[in-house]
Simulated scan of single mutants.
Amino acid sequence: MTGNRFSNHSYSARNVWSGVLFGIGLMALIDEIIFHQLLQWHHFYDDSTTQVGIFSDGILNAFALFAVVGGLFMYADLRRKHTVHMLKWIASVLIGTGSFQLFDGLINHKLLRIHQVRYTVEILPYDLAWNTAGFILLTSGILLLIKSKHRQAEE
């Protein structure tokens, strides 16, 4: 019986880590593609030359792809073992996306000041939208994760 509990706990944690890793990578890719490449509002690191900014975007892209692929490999292993808890995994994806967004908005934008959402505009509406979106994603993920734990306890 103890082995089953450990096994269930282990798979539960893998569901969470798979979703969080995928969510972080997904949001990093969305940020990179939309705000760095298509809109060209900023680079990951803007306190240097454009060349350094583009290089830093490449590093962010590599990290994002690694996180997405790693999260999906973990998810595929969970599927193969028939241990996916979809509600828990989706909750974890939301936690990952919201965590990345808030970390970027609060740490990268405000604390470290390595870039802003956008330049040459009134920044407050952009900051509020960016951080509010991250907070909503993170909070939604946490609430859904709590719901998934209650649902799993009932089963």
Rank of each mutant, 00 (worst) to 15 (best):
L111C: 11
I54C: 04
D47N: 15
Y75F: 15
D104C: 03
S7D: 14
V93M: 01
L94T: 03
M74E: 11
L38C: 06
S148V: 13
K81S: 11
G105W: 02
S12H: 00
K88N: 05
L138C: 03
T49W: 05
S18K: 05
L128I: 15
V16D: 00
S148L: 08
S12D: 05
L39Y: 14
A64F: 08
L39I: 05
D77Y: 09
G141F: 01
R151I: 11
V84N: 04
V52E: 07
M27A: 14
N61H: 09
D47V: 09
T132C: 09
V68K: 06
V16K: 00
K147E: 13
Y75S: 02
F73R: 06
K88V: 07
K149V: 15
I54A: 07
G58F: 03
V117G: 06
A67H: 09
K88E: 02
T83E: 15
S92N: 02
I59Q: 05
S92I: 00
S48F: 10
S48A: 15
Y119E: 10
V117C: 07
F35I: 05
I24L: 15
L145V: 00
F63K: 04
V69W: 07
S12G: 06
S99V: 01
L106A: 10
V69T: 10
N8R: 05
L39K: 13
N131G: 11
S92G: 02
N61M: 14
A129K: 13
S7Y: 08
L111M: 15
N131C: 12
A28P: 01
K149P: 01
N108Y: 08
H82W: 02
S12R: 03
L111T: 12
G53F: 07
H85D: 06
R79A: 13
G19P: 05
F73P: 00
K149Q: 14
N8F: 02
Q40M: 13
N4F: 02
I54L: 14
K110T: 11
N131Q: 14
I142A: 09
I136K: 03
A64R: 05
A91N: 03
I107H: 06
R5Y: 09
H9F: 14
G23S: 07
V117Q: 10
Q51L: 08
V52D: 07
L137E: 07
Q152K: 05
R118S: 04
M27G: 04
A64E: 05
H43A: 03
F44V: 13
L21D: 00
T120M: 10
M74G: 11
H9E: 15
F66I: 13
I33G: 04
F103Y: 14
F103T: 09
V16N: 01
I34Y: 10
